[in-house]
């Protein structure tokens, strides 16, 4: 039994040695400046072709009425923007609640439980806390301004505004 086990151990050792030798050879062979430059040139030659194919696909999508990968990506980016907006709101709410002495989903870390032994941490904490206090007002107004700015760019908003001004 030990003999067999030794066989498999030996096989593993031999295989590992041969693998290392082969790997070094392959890596030395591939570590060639001309090779990487040729790969790069070939890749760059493909770029205009792929670009024109993608443009053709975009043009076809208008006629065929199908979404392209870029359309899906644009949609995904809008969702991400929306998610960021909600994230920002969530953060502002938690800051507002904390400023009023409340507590949201955990607790402000940065404020209450200081480590008395660490002056470095206190320095950072106070810097962060004051940054947050100063920043919170600015962030609220920036956020509202940005939201209004974004909303004003929406066609629905413009039409509602027009209707309001007309009415």
């Amino acid at each position: 039994m030990a003999e067999k086990s030794n066989f498999y151990k030996g096989l593993k050792l031999l295989g590992t040695q041969k693998e290392q030798q082969l790997n070094s050879k392959i890596q030395n062979l591939l570590n060639n400046r001309e090779l990487i430059e040729r790969v790069s040139d070939n890749a760059q030659m493909q770029v205009p072709r792929i670009n024109s194919l993608q443009e053709a696909s975009e043009r076809m999508s208008i006629i065929m009425n199908y979404p392209t990968k870029k359309d899906v990506a644009s949609l995904a980016k809008l969702v991400i923007q929306l998610e960021e907006k909600i994230d920002g709101l969530e953060e502002l709410v938690s800051i507002l609640v904390e400023n009023r002495g409340g507590n949201v989903g955990g607790n402000s870390s940065i404020r209450n439980k200081g480590n008395a032994n660490s002056s470095r941490s206190i320095k950072k904490k106070s810097r962060l806390a004051s940054n947050e206090k100063e920043g919170s007002k600015k962030r609220i107004s920036d956020f509202l301004n940005n939201s209004l700015l974004l909303s004003s760019q929406l066609p629905e908003f413009n039409s509602v505004r027009q209707e309001n001004s007309n009415g």
Binding site: Q27, R33, I36, E37, S40
Partner: peptide, 22 residues
């Protein structure tokens, strides 16, 4: 590893930016 490739990238004789952009 692959010092020749690194040299080519550093000197700009190999460049994959446009391919990545696609």
């Amino acid at each position: 590893f692959f010092d020749q490739w690194q040299e080519a990238l550093k000197e700009g004789t190999a460049d994959f930016d446009e391919t990545i952009d696609i």
